[in-house]
Design a protein around this nucleic acid. Structure first.
Length: 900
RNA sequence: GGGCCUGUAGCUCAGUUGGUUAGAGCAUGCGCUUGAUAAGCGCAGGGUCACUGGUUCGAGCCCAGUCAGGCCCA
């Protein structure tokens, strides 16, 4: 009998599967979106909307997308999708950074000795970049990111390169470009400058010397001695001594004046005793480095005088406490030289051989490492050699030719940042930085940055279109750069590399006999100029938002700001949002983590969990800080996903057979319906606000809480009786369906930016014809504030009743709550609240009694159990034909079979 | 070494201008249900608010220092 009655129930029914199978289901939806060209459909739908421009920072076209990319790209897409649903027109043009050393490096390794011709190298680099663009494009699309994937911007597109050159032209025009000598790592084997990434350290034997620099007589008085004194210096690169232009001492370091074998010499007190051949004992006098400043000395073998300067890079770890300064051959040396106005002397040619400028005829043409013993001999002959030592150290070598590298000055091009630094700092104030400390960060970077070295002795990049005459004088004008830009726009930058200098010069109307420069432009100019090549050309300037990792304050945010201020006089963005880095559970970066030795690539996680899980993970985190990543966190997120999915599923199940057009008017809703609908409005308000301020984790928490607390544990649970047992088209049941439909419609829209696939799956399951992503967010109506007092009391008393039901359950007095009768004493509720209370307690009977204090009593429900709805009641079983049913179920069953 | 930032239950997050016994969801444990069932419901346990010191009648919140971690420099 009971089995038959079960068939008269309206149990939830849906084809929406409990098991998500995201790795299988998502690709099918993605195919559908692509086939429908959903992205352009959305743009068309929003064509009258206010534009919102999120400008994509180009990732480097190298390697697979990893969790860091996943974090950033997902955040971008959540911004895009939420802005779209808020009614904005949101074009998105993804981009890639294509030029640069890492790719050139990889290609050179693959090519080996074939890597001679620039054009060959460049073609291989391009192929390499295109390969990874294709890979990353598929990986990003798989995340559910919608955008102009078929027409992304590539920094190697000729049109892009042309705009990089035009940006440069404007800076040339404003006079903010200059050329200067600066020391760089130089491979004598490859005859090229190297970047740090191209250097390998390996052990090398070298000759080090201790040399005596005689203090000039004019300076002796400073030391308070009359006889001759030498400053002792130690160097591991004797060949740089011909380029010596000064000596550095540490301002706070103590130096002793010692006497040995009738000679006076100066050395740091902390090091003197460890000097080879030291036998002087205690110093005659001790001076601070600061007191030695300005002392002049005679170069040991050249007719040249130098001075002592103080510098903070001097230490007393090794040597003598004095550092010989050759501004053309060391970074510290160069900076000191710049500070005190020394020449950048670098008497070494491309092959690493000393030039005439070195001032010693015998050394000219000698390879620097061969010159070391010769310099030692020179010192000895001049009586300036204190000691020599063979020693082994880790020394930088060229990754390719394996020859030891040297520091050598070559001519480089710089942007004079001081020309517009103040303007840039002003513009920083006009930008909204999220989090706010980003402003300090970039201000610090812009304030402290030296002039921008934009030339690279590389091949894979945009050429610096400069010419040199036979005296080495540079020819670089804005007009010439613009002409090159126009040609490059048509022919690409290979043109510069494969065309003879003479022909280019002729084309540009320059005189004959010029040599073309072979430097490329720093890739930070490439990507930094995207405001010109992309935002201005294809979007709308300035962009509303840039969103990248916090390392970009010194990187792309800065290069974009500087080039934009230099060219347009304004910042390229209105707002800048940053995300932290992906770290492991202990807060350590993944590369240092024990748990994640290997890079965690995006696709393996998407294929294992699904894009929506990955995205839900992103949304669950406060990305402004570092974002922890672990299996456990993913498991937790998967649990949350199930909460949402099952909630959606039960709503769909309860809506089986519901026609939304035949919903019930609000005036007929029950108090519970009204309350839940009002809770929904509160949720919508909270969520829209959170999206507005990009606080996706607030959306996540609000949605999960709503699903599990308001819907699953309350509304859906309480309404089971109504949904399953009431007559199919009873008013109460239809009212509930009306509310559930509205809740679901809103809920799906709200989660769509975070879980685009699951939202779409649900939306289509609701019978909707067009994509969820074409929809707008729901508008927040009146919330639950006006129910607040009453419902606070209802929820509170429900919780109290649950405690007592649990106690009764532990005492085996009842099993499920419908087996109970609840007596509520001393509450403020009235007789006409009884039915509501019984419903929300999910019990069979509620009795209200007055009493001075609030108390709850639970007892087994009285009367017969209705076999259909399982509720107990004294009125049950009164109907002759249905002696096991309650009156309500009798009515419901009779309504099904009017004939019987 | 310097600049910027972070540290609240196992996990993810709340925590108003300092003000009762620091909250939520998930996870865990125990029970119920078997009409959301590879589901659902209830109850319970769980925190030295990184640490130390200070200001205050009162500090998770303000100040100083320490430790741990991150990004960027050197």
């Amino acid at each position: 009998m009971a089995v038959e009655y079960k068939l008269t129930l309206q149990l939830p029914k849906t084809d929406f599967p409990m098991k998500a199978d995201l790795p299988i289901r998502e690709p099918k939806l993605l195919e559908k979106w692509k086939a429908e060209d959903l992205y352009h459909q959305i743009l068309e739908r929003r064509k009258n909307g206010k534009p919102f421009i999120l400008h994509d920072g180009p990732p480097f076209a190298n390697g697979d997308a990893h969790m860091g990319h996943a974090l950033n790209m997902t955040l971008k897409d959540m911004v895009l999708k939420s802005k779209n649903m808020a009614g904005y027109r949101v074009p998105f043009i993804p981009g890639w950074d294509c030029h640069g050393l890492p790719i050139e490096h990889k290609v050179m390794k693959e090519l080996g000795d074939l890597a001679k011709d620039p054009v060959t190298i460049r073609q291989n680099c391009e192929a390499y970049a295109r390969k990874y663009i294709e890979i990353q494009r598929n990986q990003f699309e798989r995340l559910g990111v919608l955008g102009e994937w078929q027409k992304p911007y590539l920094t190697m597109d000729p049109s892009y390169e042309a705009d990089v050159l035009r940006t440069l032209a404007t800076i040339v025009e404003k006079g903010w470009i200059y050329q200067a000598l600066r020391p760089v790592y130089w491979s004598t084997g490859c005859q090229t400058a190297l970047a740090e990434a191209e250097i390998e350290y390996s052990p090398k034997m070298d000759l080090s010397v201790f040399a005596k620099f005689s203090v000039l007589e004019s300076s002796l008085s400073k030391l308070g001695v009359s006889s001759s004194v030498s400053i002792l210096i130690w160097t591991t690169t004797p060949w740089t001594l011909p380029a010596n232009l000064g000596v550095a001492a540490g301002a706070g370091i103590a130096y002793g004046l010692y006497q040995q074998n009738g000679e006076h010499f100066l050395a740091a007190t902390a090091l003197a005793a460890s000097l080879p051949g030291f036998a002087a004992g205690e110093p005659i006098q001790v001076l601070k480095g600061i007191d030695l400043e300005g002392i002049e000395y005679q170069h040991p073998f050249l007719n040249r005088q130098g001075k002592v300067y103080t510098a903070d890079f001097v230490t007393t770890e090794t040597g003598t406490g004095f550092v010989h300064i050759a501004p053309g051959h060391g970074r510290d040396d160069y900076q000191l030289g710049q500070r005190v106005g020394l020449q950048t002397l670098s008497p070494v040619d491309d092959r690493g051989c000393l030039t005439e400028e070195c001032g010693v005829a015998d050394l000219v043409g000698k390879y620097v490492f061969k010159a070391n013993p010769m310099v030692r001999d020179l010192l000895r002959n001049e009586g300036k050699l204190w000691a020599e030592q063979e020693f082994s150290h880790d020394y930088p070598h060229c990754w390719r030719s394996k020859t030891p590298i040297i520091f050598r000055s070559v001519s480089q091009w710089f942007i004079d940042v001081n020309g517009f630094r103040a303007e840039a700092l002003d513009e920083i104030k006009n930008v909204t930085w999220v989090p706010t400390w980003g402003e300090n960060r970039i201000r610090g970077a812009v304030e402290s940055r030296p002039d921008w070295c934009i030339s690279r002795q590389r091949t894979w990049g945009v050429p610096l279109p400069v010419f040199y005459d036979d005296r080495g004088t540079a020819v670089l004008t804005a007009g010439q750069v613009r002409q090159v830009a126009d040609i490059v726009e048509e022919k690409g930058t290979d043109w510069w590399f494969k065309t003879e200098a003479e022909e280019i010069a002729k084309t540009l109307g320059l005189p004959a006999g010029l040599r073309k420069g072979l430097d490329t432009i720093d890739v930070w100019i490439d990507s930094g100029a995207s405001h010109a090549a992309v935002v201005k050309r294809r979007l709308s300037f300035p962009a509303d938002l840039y969103l990248e990792g916090s390392d970009q304050h010194r990187g792309w945010f800065q290069s974009s700001l500087l080039t934009s201020v230099a060219v347009w006089g304004t910042a390229p963005y209105k707002q800048v949002l940053t995300n932290g880095f992906v770290v492991d559970m202990d807060g350590k970066k993944l590369s240092k983590s024990d748990a994640y030795k290997k890079p965690t690539d995006l696709l393996s996680f998407v294929n294992k969990f699904g894009a929506d899980i990955l995205r839900l993970w992103v949304s669950s985190q406060d990305y402004r800080d570092d974002v922890p990543f672990s299996e456990e966190i993913f498991t937790r997120v998967t649990d949350s996903y199930r909460t949402v999915r099952n909630t959606v599923r039960i709503l769909l199940g309860n809506l089986s057979g519901f026609n939304p057009e035949k919903g019930v008017d609000r005036s007929e809703w029950s108090e519970i319906d009204l309350y839940v609908e009002a809770q929904l409005q509160d949720l919508i308000r909270t969520v829209l606000g959170a999206y507005e301020s990009y606080e996706f984790h607030a959306v996540y928490h609000a949605v999960i809480r709503f699903c599990s607390v308001d819907l699953s544990a309350f509304y859906v649970d309480v309404l089971k009786d109504r949904m399953y047992c009431d007559a199919v088209s009873g008013k109460r049941r239809l009212a509930a369906q009306t509310v559930m439909y509205r809740v679901l419609e809103s809920l799906v829209r709200i989660i769509a930016p975070i879980m685009p696939y699951t939202a779409e799956e649900t939306w289509l399951m609701m019978g909707k014809k067009e994509s969820i992503h074409l929809q707008l967010f729901p508008e927040a109506g009146e919330g639950a504030a006006h129910y607040r007092d009453r419902w606070d009391r209802l929820i509170q008393v429900r919780s109290l009743v649950n405690e007592h039901l649990e106690k009764a359950r532990q005492q085996k007095l009842i099993g499920k709550s419908l087996e109970a009768q609840v007596t509520l004493r001393g509450s403020t509720f009235q007789e006409n609240d009884r039915e509501l209370l019984q419903e929300i307690f999910i019990v069979s009977q509620v009795r209200l009694e007055s009493a001075p204090t609030l108390s709850v009593e639970v007892s087994p429900a009285g009367g017969l159990k209705c076999v259909r709805c399982w509720k107990f009641g004294e009125e049950n079983g009164k109907h002759a034909e249905h002696p096991e049913l309650c009156p309500r179920c009798t009515e419901a069953v009779l309504a099904l079979n009017p004939d019987s």
